[in-house]
Design a protein around this nucleic acid. Structure first.
Lengths: 212, 212
DNA sequence: TGTAAAAGTCGACTACGGTCAACTTTTACA
DNA sequence: TGTAAAAGTTGACCGTAGTCGACTTTTACA
């Protein structure tokens, strides 16, 4: 029933991925050739292309797997009744740490994730769906607790946080803010936006408290 | 005094840029080779590389020039006393229209602009500076008029708008929202964030008005 | 104006990403 | 078990981005 084939394919794919990760780590993405990956994995160049459509796809496959793992970790560890600010900070800072751990990887990955090539749109739709499944419950619970106005679209609320996450990465890659200030900055921006989303009369803004 | 040389260089650079724009427009960025650009411009391949460091750099040089022009247009046309919401919408929607006019160009450009390659960081610092010079006065005037709390860092306020602009492009490139709804969506998100930034007691949030 | 050096031009060359038709292995089934 | 077809593998091959050293033009200055 094709069991041998399945087994072999898994092993080969893993071997290629491992070889790629190792070489990318050693020499960087741009300085690693497909032929080197193939040789290291003990297969022919053509075989690499029967498992991955492009060189970037190899990188992307790895990153996606890792991110999914991180998301699961976060989702299970986060205190579901903590303020939305803390929950969002935990999730997005974990993702930020992961992406910037290897700046070169991270840049390519976030470029592809934020502004994808139409060819890979389908992959992203899957990815985005998992993303929403993690974020939406947090927003809905915050709405139930009265932290966020309940008539707001969860999609829009989610958008605000994701937007600031993109901004943080932009600020990081343009060296506009030093790495160490990332969390502090994100906290400030998240607080400010939550002020605009909370119910009438309950916000810092309405008490005239500063955020800077 | 090297006048002939200067003149020739300008002409050659312009010729290469024109050839590139023409070919990119006709056949797309990926399907245009440097050799074709060189031939069309009437120079050798090596000459192209003495004016531009990479193929993408040619595209980028063009986009930057265009954007600068658009920014100037916007800055001069905008009503300086309109609500900050309207001024920001005008500027960012103009930029959005320009970037998405040619989706392929736009994707490469925004990728490079948002998450730049460290090699080109210097170019971006220039670009960002011009950007701030356009946005900051609008924010400061809004603070003076009492639309935005005056103790907030203009840089942070600017960040909120730019973040939502990046989000809009993301939503557009992932086909999350149809092109026609771009402006409506950006208006909603901008309004929501301004609520969180305005002085105590003056905001929609404090009056319990919806935004969705 | 003659000339040496600096600036600019050039296309053959290198290395790489991605393709493809020939070849090998595995499967399904008589 | 024998065999034909399906699935998987391979490296020679193609086109192109980017390099480099030989060549041409311009400049500075005697």
């Amino acid at each position: 029933m094709g069991a041998i084939r399945e087994q072999k394919k898994k092993i080969t794919k893993k071997a290629i991925l491992n070889a790629a990760i190792q070489l990318f780590g050693e020499k960087g993405f741009e300085n690693t050739s497909i032929e080197q990956i193939a040789k290291t994995a003990g297969v022919g160049k053509g075989t690499v292309y029967s498992y991955f459509t492009t060189k970037r796809d190899i990188l992307y496959a790895f990153c996606e797997g890792e991110l999914e793992y991180i998301h699961e970790q976060m989702a299970s560890k986060t205190n579901q009744n903590a303020p939305i600010l803390e929950q969002m900070l935990t999730i997005f800072m974990a993702e930020f740490q992961y992406i910037t751990k290897n700046p070169e990887f991270g840049r390519l990955f976030i470029r592809e994730m934020a502004f994808p090539n139409p060819t890979f749109l389908d992959d992203h739709q899957d990815n985005d769906k998992k993303y929403f499944e993690m974020i939406f419950p947090i927003i809905i619970r915050a709405q139930e607790r009265g932290e966020i106005r309940s008539e707001l679209e969860p999609l829009h609320v989610c958008g605000h946080f994701f937007a600031l996450f993109l901004l943080l990465l932009h600020a990081n890659y343009t060296k506009m803010i030093p790495f160490e200030e990332a969390e502090k900055t994100l906290r400030t921006l998240f607080s400010q936006v939550i002020d605009g989303l909370q119910p009438a009369g309950s916000g810092d803004a309405c008490k005239g408290v500063t955020h800077g």
